[in-house]
Design a protein around this nucleic acid. Structure first.
Lengths: 175, 175
DNA sequence: AGGGAATTCGATATGTCATTGCGTAACTCC
DNA sequence: GGAGTTACGCAATGACATATCGAATTCCCT
């Protein structure tokens, strides 16, 4: 009984062959939130989708689709790329994940706030970590530019690559 | 003698097999500027690089690397991808071209000003055109975020996809 | 001019990311 | 419990990018 009853319901489904990546402490909370969001949207957080989301949440750095497929593979059984992409598309549509266009990689956004502000993703090239930054000023400046150009935005990509505070000074970390 | 003598010197080199895409009016100016920039940087704008840049300048929309290879192909003779990518890398390093990460496509930036401001690229999903937008406010807001995060930026990706002023109302253009 | 170093380019292969098409299984709703 | 919708499996292919290695070109210096 490591987890409350609700957890079991969340993580296991009828046709479950067990998957790797046993969730950590607050993973439970995160998944619960994701589940709630999906329920609110009237869509289903299936086993595959949940597993992919869990992998994204567990990773300290963005993951590629094939990387996800590898991570979630269990004994000679690996997801087809299309399966991963479908799960990712779903998660992105529900606002649970985000695609980093400059990296072809994906991160969880379950735990990010961001409201309706434009969000800039800060990608550290040393440690691989990604943090988010936003401000009313940024949102305002951007929408001002769009307004002046008469441009109707659909999706925004704001990504900055560089070195995070913790990695300052390191010329370049090998990975 | 459709062009001044300087033009010949720019566009033709010793070992020139002629390439397609005869330059338009102000293309001459643009190429001259690119040439000047390269000279100032102490690097060479070779035939291949010039041809690729010319193609980018001539196109009203961003071009992919393979698209460029196709465009510049002459009778059953096509650039290898690596050749195009090398030219693109060069142009980008010299600030003559820009990669749109969200599109895997490339545009010329010879004719753009931008100074040292952060530049947002506005990509129209109807007509494919790309315009640039920048402001002191945007630059300030962004660097403010970076400063607060203690993040040392190396490259910035600011891209907005949507519909440009001319294409408002069109639900979706087929292409 | 001539020779050596550096840069640029050609050719082939391969790696990485993403999608298409089509058929089957599962779930939902009445 | 049957029809319609949604999700998944499978194989192939398309789209984008890089590795490697050797040949050709250009630069620079004497």
């Amino acid at each position: 009984m490591a987890h409350p009853a609700t957890y079991k319901a969340l993580v296991e489904s009828k046709s479950d062959r067990p998957h790797p990546l046993p969730p950590s402490k607050d993973m439970t909370q995160t998944l619960a939130r994701a589940e709630a969001i999906c329920r609110a949207h009237g869509v289903r957080l299936t086993r595959i989708r949940r597993t992919v989301l869990q992998a994204l949440c567990s990773s300290p750095k963005p993951l590629g689709a094939y990387e996800l497929a590898d991570m979630l593979a269990s004994n000679a059984r690996r997801m087809a790329p299309i399966t991963v992409y479908r799960a990712l598309d779903f998660l992105i549509e529900q606002g649970l994940a985000h695609r980093l266009a400059s990296r072809n990689a994906y991160i969880s956004t379950v735990d990010s706030d961001s409201g309706r502000d434009a969000v800039a993703y800060l990608i550290c090239e040393s440690c691989g970590s990604v943090s988010e930054g936003s401000s009313a000023a940024l949102t305002g400046a951007l929408s001002d530019i769009l307004l002046r150009a008469g441009f109707e935005p659909r999706s925004k990509v704001l990504e900055v690559a560089g070195h995070c505070a913790a990695c300052q000074g390191h010329s370049q970390e090998r990975h």
